[in-house]
Simulated scan of single mutants.
Amino acid sequence: MVEAYMLIQTEVGRAEVVAKQLATLPGVRSAEYVTGPYDVVVRVEAGTLEDLRVMVAPSVAGVAGITRTLTCPIAAAARP
């Protein structure tokens, strides 16, 4: 299983609506609207990096109101 964070910029005033729409998509584990340089942070998962690139990321980027995305695959989970 491959996981990634997607950092998303939205049209002004659309972050909450976009986050709610993203939360319903296949492969999306969580979607939160935040403050700062990005408006929404999404955690996504797929079976392979290729599946993430070909299926999950485009479905996220296709949501109305999104102006830019940055996908950051998780290299390794931190262990306490």
Rank of each mutant, 00 (worst) to 15 (best):
P37G: 07
I74M: 08
V12C: 05
G65N: 06
L52G: 05
V41H: 05
M55R: 15
Y33M: 07
Y38K: 04
V40F: 00
A31V: 07
P37I: 02
G65P: 02
I8L: 00
A76I: 11
T35R: 09
M6P: 01
D51T: 06
E3K: 15
E3A: 09
R53S: 13
V54S: 04
T69S: 03
R14K: 15
V12R: 12
G65T: 07
E32G: 02
V28S: 12
G13R: 13
L22C: 07
E3Y: 09
A78M: 14
T35V: 08
L7I: 03
A31L: 08
L22P: 04
Q9E: 13
I8Q: 02
V63S: 11
P58T: 03
M55L: 12
G13N: 12
V41M: 10
I8E: 03
E3R: 15
Y38N: 11
A78L: 15
V17Q: 12
M55T: 14
A46P: 11
A23G: 06
V34P: 05
A31F: 09
T48I: 04
R53Q: 11
Q9T: 07
A19R: 05
S59E: 07
V56Y: 13
R29W: 01
A4L: 01
I74F: 03
V41S: 05
V44C: 04
V17L: 05
G27E: 10
S59W: 00
R53V: 01
M1G: 15
V63L: 04
L52T: 05
V44I: 09
R43E: 08
L49C: 00
T69N: 03
A57T: 15
V60S: 12
P80N: 00
V28E: 14
Y33N: 14
V56R: 08
T35I: 05
V56H: 13
M6K: 03
T71R: 05
V2T: 10
M6V: 15
A15G: 07
L49I: 06
V2M: 04
V2N: 05
M6H: 02
G62L: 03
T35L: 08
V12T: 15
V34Q: 10
A76V: 07
V40R: 03
Q9I: 01
Y5V: 09
I74P: 09
G47M: 06
E3H: 13
T48Q: 02
A57P: 12
M55W: 11
L22M: 09
Y5Q: 09
A19V: 00
P73F: 12
Y38F: 11
Y33G: 01
A23N: 13
V17E: 11
L52S: 02
L70T: 03
S59R: 12
A61R: 15
P80I: 00
D51C: 05
R43K: 14
V56L: 10
V18K: 11
G62C: 02
L22S: 06
G13V: 08
C72S: 14
V63C: 08
I8Y: 01
V63Q: 11
